[in-house]
Design a protein around this nucleic acid. Structure first.
Length: 257
DNA sequence: ATGGTCGCGCAGCGA
């Protein structure tokens, strides 16, 4: 099964590119983030025409996450599965695809160390751990894929010296991600590609993409048994090129549940 | 040169 995560930065603007990419790559399960759509504006028919069922959790102007699947889409939950208060923002959606419990996540950005939004990011990640623990307890294979807004280690940024005391690399954020993986989840792409310099996001400004100034913040986490089946993974840099790209490239991971 | 670009939506914020 081919899994993809892709922060599309507005599905309204990006739909033509997403459609063409899906037709070419033929993934089985796709986790989207930052659709920036209300549920009623989600283009179900466009995806149906390509063979995908879809579920979307959106609020309109910001955030918005979805799961597309051509191998079944069941038991959709549009929030944390920890039994707590509903999250105010549309940042995760969970569904079962061919026996795999899949969650598409858009982790808060954090904005700056010490900012209220940074505290929100850490609280959100702590809740995500509870969500994953609850999901794992159901006994199915688990995939948690999305824009984590965290570079797991120094291989995941273009210049570690430039990422000191900033969001995406700060020790509390990395510790929160480690808490998550301590539940038995594995960064599948990293398992296949240990080298540095492989990024999934580049700022639109200053020619960062062409200068190689990026970060790897889009991850596909899978339970250990499922991750052990991974033999192939790639970040499709070509999808970051050309006219009207997202600032994120899609990450593809083949797993065999 | 100490910025730079997008997307949303129509000012300026968020990323």
């Amino acid at each position: 099964m081919r899994f993809v995560t892709w922060n599309v930065n507005s599905l309204k603007i990006r739909l033509p590119r997403v459609e063409a990419w899906l037709a070419e790559v033929q993934p089985d399960v796709v986790c989207l983030q930052e659709t920036k759509l209300a549920d009623k504006a989600f283009p179900h028919l466009a995806f149906q025409a390509l063979g995908y069922d879809a579920s979307h959790c959106g609020e309109g102007r910001w955030n918005g996450v979805a799961i597309l699947s051509r191998v079944g889409l069941e038991d959709v939950v549009c929030d944390f599965a920890d039994g707590g208060e509903p999250d105010a923002e549309a940042r995760l959606i969970t569904a079962t695809c061919a026996g795999v419990r899949v969650t598409s996540v858009y982790v808060p950005n954090g904005r700056a160390l010490g900012h209220e939004h940074y505290a929100y990011k850490l609280r959100w990640l702590a809740r995500l751990k509870d969500h994953v623990a609850a999901t794992r307890a159901e006994g199915q294979h688990v995939v948690v894929a999305g824009d984590f807004n965290i570079a797991p280690d120094d291989r995941d940024v273009y210049d570690p010296a430039k990422f000191v005391d900033v969001t995406h690399t700060s020790p509390p954020e990395r510790a929160a991600l480690a808490e998550l993986t301590s539940l038995g989840l594995v960064d599948t792409f990293r398992r296949v590609h240990p080298e540095d310099g492989l990024f999934s996001w580049w700022d639109y400004r200053a020619g960062d993409f062409h200068q190689g100034r990026g970060m790897r913040i889009d991850l596909v986490l899978a339970d250990e048994a499922l991750a052990a089946t991974c033999r192939w993974a790639i970040i499709d840099r070509n999808a970051r090129k050309g006219s009207q790209p997202s600032d994120h490239a899609p990450v593809l991971v083949d797993l065999y549940p």
